[in-house]
């Protein structure tokens, strides 16, 4: 709803400021004491992160919406069990990972892991944009997004968590249930695959960036 007066605008700004300054821990405490606005703030704070991660895993927007919504509902349901041993974001991403994995298993019961090398997820090749066009930031981002979309769910997930969400390897181990060695190997492999996708499919753009 649009603010109708100066007072409304001030209140909206105040609310935005409050939402931005309240820590996750405080919001969780407020949510546990039954304040619906705290749940709402948590959703608004993390919706883009949760949705992006879900999209990396399930590869299409419709399923990503479903996974993201289920993840939030599961997180709220089990919020009393959150003991604060890990960051809230790490705990939430772990839920997203599990929900995405369950979603993919439901769609394909043979799928035991997100890292399905034998049947890589097929993403329609949208082709390389016209090389004559100047690649602005948006184009560059679009190409990177497309390159990530060509990766397997596991590779795309680990790349997103490490580089975009700046999760440490320890946290990634926690989220994806991996050992440290396994996580390092997966990250290294994901990097190599991303590099090869970029070299194969987006070489023209990369050349222009450099």
């Amino acid at each position: 709803m649009l603010p109708t007066s100066v007072s409304d605008t001030t209140n909206t700004l105040k609310a935005s400021y409050m939402a931005a300054t309240i820590t996750d821990e405080s919001l969780i405490q407020m949510a546990l004491s039954g304040r619906q606005s705290a749940f709402s703030m948590l959703v608004k704070r993390y919706e883009n992160y949760v949705f992006t991660l879900a999209l990396r895993f399930v590869k299409n927007r419709e399923d990503a919406h479903e996974v993201a919504q289920d993840s939030f509902l599961r997180a709220f349901r089990y919020l009393p069990d959150f003991r604060g041993e890990a960051k809230f974001s790490t705990w939430l991403y772990r839920i997203v990972f599990t929900t995405a994995l369950n979603h993919l298993r439901k769609k394909n019961p043979d799928n035991r892991s997100l890292d399905d090398d034998s049947k890589p997820l097929q993403i329609p090749d949208q082709g390389t944009p016209d090389g004559a066009l100047t690649l602005e930031q948006n184009d560059r981002n679009k190409s990177l997004h497309q390159a990530i979309a060509h990766l397997s769910a596991d590779d795309a997930g680990i790349i997103t968590l490490f580089y975009l969400y700046e999760q440490s390897l320890d946290e990634i181990c926690d989220i994806m249930g991996l050992t440290m060695t396994n996580a390092k190997t997966k990250l290294c492999r994901a990097r190599q695959r991303l590099k090869s996708v970029l070299d194969d499919k987006f070489a023209a753009e990369i050349k222009e960036w450099r």
């Binding site: 919706e47 949705f51 939030f72 509902l73």
Partner: peptide
């Protein structure tokens, strides 16, 4: 970051 469709947060809250 990718953005969900408009009203996503409201739908989550309604379901909750």
């Amino acid at each position: 970051l990718e953005k969900p469709n408009a009203g996503f947060a409201d739908r989550v809250m309604a379901a909750w």
